[in-house]
Design a protein around this nucleic acid. Structure first.
Length: 441
DNA sequence: CTAGGGTTATAT
DNA sequence: ATATAACCCTAG
């Protein structure tokens, strides 16, 4: 995984992502050497902390595993909170286990026993007087009630773990992307050098040290340019490229609003025109365009959360599985120009101060084909031109597919697709089958 | 809907 | 230039 994916993953992990997805990411990235080099310590830590929090109302041995792993990651800015979290998690896990003697054996004789015996880093980080005290108490007790009678605050234990995780996040500071965004915002507000240097320092603290030194080297050559156009700093360029490149990965997290909007629009169309839907291919504009706008507005109202912030775009994928044959208003218009996030079509620069900006201008509507023959020809062209954009399979998708084939069996592609549709977004059952064929060759 | 052959874009 | 992965077509 490269540095840029790391920034983005870290950012994504700090967001509110579905717990199922988080779990998968944990399984994918954590158990140390998965495919290639393990992720950066910072990312690993983020992942572990998120995992820890996601387990939370419950305390289990999984909680303990997470904390033990976290303990191995330097630096450890909150040693007291870490010890406290471990203690509370251990006690909590013991009490919430259905098998009290078994849990004591596993947690207190096993884990804690080893921990207290061994000397060195892990002992320093996790062991405490209180922990050995609890160990004595647990091993002496013959039942859960007996162990608990000296007082135990279950909610307090959960709070202790949460407090530790929050403190760690706090100590880590904002994610690299957030810091970069903040830096640029401030840079845009004031061109004062002092402020710039201050923010810069803050940002560097957030990023990995490797990233920092790399960029510092680059900085000098482009300084003149960035003063007059803060949007063009190498940092933005880099982040922008990263966002584009990673949009594929993000697609499994961020829903593309377009298919949904189209669905709604089609629904409205169907209701409006009764049974038959026929829209002339090259549409006469003016009178219908008003209606068209309304429909878009309505769909926007129905899904306010889908409005992505400016600059973060998912690709405009218009095709909807069931609509391949229907020509609808929302389908890609062959005569219109769309702005796509293709890697090589990105050019935000307007270096020439001539004010002659490169505006997109939509060509005026072509005259509609006169003969039926021509209509056919145009339709064919549309069909040919409408191949899906190639999208590489993510590791998450591959993993999910493997797991799904294990549970449902090879050949149950439709079933697999529907039960994991949130992960196989925009894939068809045929894609799954093809992918499986590729994977097993 | 699935299987399997065919086509094309992309990585090596 | 070639191999491979992703995608397409279509019979059954």
């Amino acid at each position: 995984m490269d540095e840029i994916s790391t920034w983005i993953l870290e950012f994504v992990l700090r967001q509110d992502i579905p717990s199922a997805l988080l779990r998968r990411l944990v399984l994918l990235l954590l158990p140390s050497p998965s495919p290639s080099p393990s992720p950066s310590p910072r990312l690993t830590k983020t992942l572990l902390l998120r995992h820890l929090l996601s387990l939370l109302p419950k305390l289990s041995t999984e909680t303990l595993d997470s904390i033990e792993l976290l303990q191995t990651l330097a630096p450890n800015p909150n040693p007291d909170l870490l010890r406290s979290a471990y203690l509370h998690a251990a006690v909590g896990a013991t009490f919430s286990s259905p098998n009290f003697p078994g849990a004591v054996e596993d947690i207190w004789t096993g884990r804690v026993g080893c921990l207290l015996k061994s000397s060195g880093a892990s002992k320093d980080a996790l062991a405490s007087e209180e922990l050995s005290e609890w160990r004595r108490r647990m091993e002496a007790a013959s039942s859960r009630d007996e162990a608990m009678k000296e007082g135990w605050d279950a909610q307090g234990a959960v709070d202790a773990v949460a407090a530790y995780a929050r403190a760690e996040f706090e100590a880590m500071g904002p994610t690299f992307l957030e810091a970069a965004a903040e830096y640029l915002r401030v840079l845009g507000e004031s061109t004062s050098g002092a402020a710039e240097r201050q923010r810069k320092g803050k940002m560097m603290a957030a990023g990995s040290s490797r990233a920092g030194s790399k960029r510092r080297k680059k900085k000098n050559g482009v300084n003149a340019k960035r003063v007059c156009n803060p949007i063009l700093t190498p940092e933005v360029q880099k982040v922008r490229e990263a966002l584009i490149r990673s949009s594929k990965a993000l697609q499994s997290v961020v829903e593309d609003p377009l298919p949904r909007a189209k669905e709604i629009a089609d629904g409205l169309m169907a209701r409006k025109s009764g049974a038959g839907i026929h829209v002339e291919e090259p549409r006469e504009n003016s009178d219908q365009s008003e209606e068209n706008r309304n429909m878009v507005d309505k769909s926007a109202q129905a899904h306010p959360a889908d409005n992505a912030p400016d600059g973060i775009h998912t690709e405009g994928r218009c095709k909807h599985p069931n609509d391949a044959t229907k020509a609808s208003l929302m389908d890609r218009n062959p005569t219109a120009q769309t702005y796509e996030w293709d890697d090589d079509s990105i050019d935000f620069s307007s270096e020439d101060g001539t004010g002659q900006s490169k505006k997109l201008h939509l060509p005026t509507q072509r005259t509609k084909p006169s003969s039926p023959l021509k209509v056919l020809e145009v339709n064919q062209k549309v069909k040919l031109a409408r191949g899906r954009k190639r999208r590489r399979w993510t590791v998450l998708e591959e993993d999910t597919l493997r797991e799904a084939v294990n549970t449902y069996g090879r050949g149950k592609w439709k079933k697999i697709l529907t039960s994991y549709h949130e992960i196989f977004e925009e894939r068809t059952e045929v894609d799954l089958k093809d992918k499986w064929r590729n994977m097993t060759r």
